[in-house]
Amino acid sequence: MANLSTRIHNLTLKNPVLTASGTFGYGEEFADFIDLAQLGGIIVKGTTGEKRQGNPYPRMAETPAGMLNAVGLQNIGVEAFCSEVYPRIKELDTNIMVNVSGSSIEEYCRVAEAIDSLERIPAIELNISCPNVKKGGMGFGTNPDMAAQVVNAVRRVYHKTLIVKLTPNVTSVVDIAKAVEQAGADSVSLINTLLGMAIDVERQRPCLSTITGGLSGPCVKPVAVRMVWQVAHAVQIPVIGLGGITTAADALEFLMAGAKAVEVGTANFIDPAVTVKIIDGLQDYCLRHHIDDINDIIGII
């Protein structure tokens, strides 16, 4: 058996496969299908200061090799997460991380601070890249100064591993990555969804209630691999890659491009057991290629 364990800052992952926020609920939804303890980590859904209802239906449209979503951060709020969900999932033998979202710097800090006090949550993923909310979200992630400001503020109140999730909807993702590294991020994850749009020509209306939404799935993978490769060569902090990963080969592309870990998102909707298949596939690959340690192929491109 090859070593699949990798490190993100001072966090040890038993393997580099994490689940992407918003595609895996709180993990419990998948417990019938896989042993959650096999995962490198679970990033639970975007959590905000208050409970949010999200955007009106329809919030999803299937597109070629992908899907658009406009869920808009529907979630129960950080207080309910801490009191209701955390006690149910804290004993899981994997790294549980919370995707932290907000509309203001104050809200990001409030959520991060609340999560900081949860003993069994070793990291947060700061979501400065959600394309589906009117205020905040991607607004913070498209400007290097704004991105740095949020990260700076959260860094002051959050003491564990701070991952910052980046949007691809920018001219230079490298500039944003460098700005958040400078501001104290321990790691960056990319890419969040690409802003997209689809029209129902029979009804002559947009497919989504919000008109635009976030594109994910296999169709975004080449864009994501390119951005991960660019960022991995530009920053010193570990990069987590995501965008359209469906197979172990997809995950390996991201690892070779420089990602220390990967997140699996949309593929969970199609095969709820896909994460474990990807982990098994990484072992098979290492065996076939006589690789003792997965870290030996990280960033080889």
């Binding site: 998948f30 239906y57 999803m60 529907q74």
Partner: peptide
């Protein structure tokens, strides 16, 4: 409603 996951993870099919 239109669904993606069918198991309550994606929150796309809400009413």
């Amino acid at each position: 409603n239109m669904m993606a996951c069918g198991i309550g993870a994606c929150l796309c099919c809400v009413t």
